[in-house]
Amino acid sequence: MMDTSKREEHWRRTKSLMIVTLTIWFIFSFVVHWFAAGLNSVNFAGWPLGFYMAAQGSEIVFVITLFWFVKAQDKIDRDCGLAEED
């Protein structure tokens, strides 16, 4: 068995990261699109903003979030000494 306090810290930080990631996910999956009609009155580089967010904006946020998440989780693993060998 490995050091339990390290494991606990690892799981606590992993959970926080999951919550932050899913909060971003929730906002750009649901909240933004709930208000699409209102956002459409805003012009974003030619696009109505509500349409833009559904066609491109949310997707760009998802890609960036995911690469960030991978990095952040890897750092947690390494900090706690629970990462796999490279």
Binding site: M18, T21, F28, A54, A55, E59, F62
Partner: peptide, 18 residues
Amino acid sequence: YLAFVVGWTGGYILVASL
């Protein structure tokens, strides 16, 4: 229809984090 585009990309956040 763009709901499909949003849904079929954002699901990967769940795949990676959960």
